[in-house]
């Protein structure tokens, strides 16, 4: 772990515990810091508690009958633990939820409009859209077709674009690479890196695809069974033997591990 002094973190999460339905302890004291302007990865296998961590930060926990039972979350120095999800978006936190979830019956253009913050002028919205279409030229081509019929990659781009309309200073993404071909993952991650560089937007990236994620982030956290078990620079994590064995496809057993968790998790999704 590195201890060097950094700029004040945009996000600081301290020993956070989350309970679902008042009984299911999904994360057990997670502490994470996102330094302003950096890209951070949150890695771990299925069921480890990655999505729960993001939902605790975005406030979407409430929609799933979850709550923070211990710890606190500070965003730009303010405690947001009690702030409503929609107000957190206004403060600059946007969460691209798992599984793309674009508004299927709307066009991509309407998807972007739907996310416009209250009070954003028409010209500001149009300028924002043009910027997003510049980042994702594929979306520009299909801006007036029905979003439900876009390809998986295009939907993921749209989900990210839709989040950008809210003008976040912290963008959180939940497994954006899921189910996408490697060349698309590379394209999308490249664009994320560009946005991070050009706009100074901080990014918290949740991934199972550690190999791809560690290429673009500066630091990573590894989470297992609801606890952070490792934290280090991307370089350090890439060369760590455990990480190599379990998450970079070096060893055996990975598949079994994932399958077991996957079947367990499917229950919650259905």
């Amino acid at each position: 772990m590195q201890e060097k002094a950094e700029a004040a973190p945009i996000l600081s999460m301290n020993s956070v515990e989350v309970l679902y339905d008042n009984i299911m302890l999904a994360i057990k004291g997670v502490s994470i810091q996102v330094p302003t302007g950096e890209m951070i990865a949150l890695l771990g296998s299925n069921g480890a508690g990655k999505s729960t961590t993001l939902k605790a930060i975005s406030g979407l926990l409430k929609a799933e009958r979850g709550r923070i039972s211990r710890g606190e979350i500070a965003f730009q120095g303010t405690d947001i633990t009690e702030v409503l999800a929609q107000n957190r978006v206004g403060m600059g936190i946007c969460h691209v939820i798992e599984g793309r979830r674009v508004f299927e019956h709307l066009t991509p253009d309407e998807n972007l409009t739907a996310a416009a913050p209250r009070g954003m002028s028409r010209s500001a919205l149009n300028a924002e859209k043009e910027k997003i279409y510049n980042y994702f030229p594929r979306l520009a081509e299909r801006r007036n077709s029905q979003a439900g019929y876009l390809s998986g990659g295009e939907q993921q781009m749209l989900a990210i674009g839709r989040a950008l309309v809210t003008q976040p200073s912290l963008l959180m993404l939940d497994e954006p690479s899921l189910g996408l071909a490697p060349f698309l993952v590379e394209e999308i991650f490249g664009i994320l890196q560009k946005i991070n560089r050009e706009e100074g937007m901080s990014v918290l990236l949740v991934e199972q695809n550690a190999l791809a994620a560690l290429e673009i982030v500066s630091q990573g956290y590894l989470i297992e069974n609801g606890r952070v078990v490792m934290h280090g620079t991307a370089e350090a994590l890439k060369s760590n033997s455990d990480i190599q064995e379990f998450y970079l496809g070096g060893g055996e057993g990975t598949n079994f591990h994932n399958v077991k968790h996957y079947s367990r998790r499917k229950r919650w999704l259905s």
Binding site: L60, A63, A85, Q86, V89, I97, R101, N111, A114, V165
Partner: peptide, 23 residues
């Protein structure tokens, strides 16, 4: 209109609507 589009977005997906700050 923008409000109408937000209503249609809500009809499509509550969770995604919350995630981008739609009430």
């Amino acid at each position: 209109t923008r409000t109408g589009i937000k209503l249609r977005a809500i009809a499509d997906d509550y969770m995604a609507s919350w995630s981008v700050g739609i009430s």
